[in-house]
């Protein structure tokens, strides 16, 4: 059943096994091509599997998905494809959030605007408590080292 498939999909996602989750997501979509949860899961799987071009294509051409405000996912695809100015434009539509700032910092770093990246990371490091504090400190250090 779809419920059983979603149970497995959720578990595989928690374990980071997106290559195993994707076929199950596609099975759900065969039963119901308009299932929004499955469509969103498909995008996540594609992004985790480094298929940013396909993810972006799906997000912008699928009738249901293109209606959704998936700013962060769309901007992330553009960032990975090195379309950095477009990625910033996409994020300007998003509600401000630490997630948006984190991607902005990465974009500015890639643009070699290290001052701006460092400035965003300083604020994030001060205000964010999650599993990525060490990685964020490393990114801040990288931005500071490159800006000096």
């Amino acid at each position: 059943t779809v419920e059983q498939l979603f149970t497995q999909i959720r578990k595989l996602g928690q374990d980071g096994l997106h290559h195993k989750a994707l076929p199950l997501v596609i099975e759900v979509l065969k039963k119901n091509p308009k299932d929004l949860d499955a469509l969103k899961c498909k995008i996540v799987c594609l992004l985790k599997l480094d298929k940013c071009k396909e993810a972006y294509h799906t997000m912008t051409t699928d009738k249901e998905l293109s209606k959704l405000p998936m700013w962060h996912e769309r901007a992330y695809c553009l960032y990975r494809q090195n379309k950095l100015e477009e990625a910033i434009t996409e994020l300007n539509n998003a509600e401000p959030s630490p997630k948006v700032d984190e991607l902005l910092a990465q974009i500015y770093y890639k643009l070699e605007n290290y001052e701006e990246a460092a400035s965003i990371y300083k604020t994030l490091v001060k205000n964010t408590m999650d599993s990525y504090t060490n990685e964020r400190e490393t990114n801040l250090a990288a931005a500071l080292a490159s800006s000096s």
Binding site: C41, V44, K99, T138
Partner: peptide, 21 residues
């Protein structure tokens, strides 16, 4: 080149499937 992590990829996650399972 200094180490730099793609933290944003970690922020991309499945929607809450709690109602679907």
């Amino acid at each position: 080149k200094p180490t730099f992590f793609d933290i944003s990829l970690n922020h991309i996650e499945f929607p809450d499937l709690g109602e679907r399972v």
